[in-house]
């Protein structure tokens, strides 16, 4: 039970990160290497907004993280990514690497590299056999991740903007010619991806802690997206589950020290056998 709960919670953290990576790739063919940094900075913003409100209300930190995601998403697209249209794909990748470095420096400068924890709902909610417990934050991780993916499904499937989004992902030029505001759609993709990352960062800060080292969760999210397939949200969840299982089982059955290397070993194996990922399409890989 404890084993299953831990894997499910880890899966949720990685799935949110992988979802952001997939959305950005599908929308603009950008592989975002700053996703871990965006997640952790989102968590830091949540923490600081909570402090500013005196820790009395949950709405203020939530609003802080949402506003951060919107501003950051719009800024990254409008100020940087939009200018890279027509450039080789690796230019955008390098820009995201640069964004990651700047965000990590921001953690050093603004938060003085302090390790912070988000102590919301950390009290035990469920006690399992053997004395292990699940906190309200753990339960929230699962509920919010399911809600996020359900929301995404409904958005893409049933809203006009969602259809425009899918059209842009399929063929941006054609979508533009049909009157879709492609810049707005691509900005929205960044906002949604950073929202998912911030949510992941907040949940992670509740379970572990936020620090400059915590940004490595972005690599786990990226691995999950690559294993599942860069253009598949379903693959993001599957990839997250596989990475979480691999990490957890390595700790428990092999050697805990190898737990961070195993996902990458898994990535190498999947990429060797099926380079487009488990649920990705071969056509997408060919484009890259």
């Amino acid at each position: 039970m404890e084993f299953a709960a831990t894997i499910v919670i880890l899966t949720c953290t990685y799935a949110l990160l992988a979802a952001g990576t997939v959305i950005l790739y599908k929308a603009g063919r950008v592989v975002n290497f700053a996703h871990g940094e965006l997640a952790i900075v989102g968590g830091y913003v949540f923490y600081s907004a909570g402090l500013m409100s005196g820790g009395t209300s949950l709405w203020f930190p939530v609003a802080g993280a949402v506003v951060f995601s919107i501003i950051m998403g719009m800024f990254i697209y409008m100020a940087m990514m939009r200018r890279l249209v027509g450039e080789p794909f690796y230019v955008a990748i390098l820009v995201t690497v640069g964004i990651g470095i700047v965000l990590k420096s921001a953690i050093l400068v603004i938060w003085r590299a302090e390790r912070l924890t988000i102590d919301v709902g950390v009290t035990p909610a469920i006690r399992m056999a053997g004395g292990a417990t699940l906190s309200y934050m753990d339960i929230a991780s699962v509920v919010l991740t399911v809600a996020f993916f359900a929301g995404l499904y409904l958005f893409f499937r049933f809203t006009r903007l969602g259809v425009q989004f899918r059209g842009t992902a399929e063929n941006a030029l054609l979508a533009s010619q049909r009157g879709v505001d492609v810049n707005f759609v691509l900005s929205l993709a960044w906002v949604i991806a950073i929202l998912a990352a911030s949510l992941s960062g907040v949940l992670y800060g509740g379970r572990a802690f936020l620090s400059t080292e915590s940004v490595t969760i972005g690599l786990a999210g990226l691995t999950a997206a690559l294993v599942g397939g860069l253009d598949s949200l379903r693959g993001a969840v599957a990839g997250a589950f596989i990475v979480a299982c691999a990490q957890y089982l390595t700790v428990r059955l092999v050697d805990p020290v190898l737990s961070e290397a195993v996902p990458f070993l898994l990535l190498v194996i999947v990429m060797s056998i099926r380079p487009w990922g488990l649920f990705g399409t071969q056509e997408e890989l060919d484009r890259v």
Binding site: T6, L10, Q247
Partner: peptide
């Protein structure tokens, strides 16, 4: 004993290995 990688920040799986 239980060792973990230097960059670890979610200790749950390691703590479970200790508790076991």
């Amino acid at each position: 004993e239980v060792l973990f990688p230097v960059t670890t920040s979610d200790f749950t799986p390691f703590a479970q290995a200790v508790a076991e």
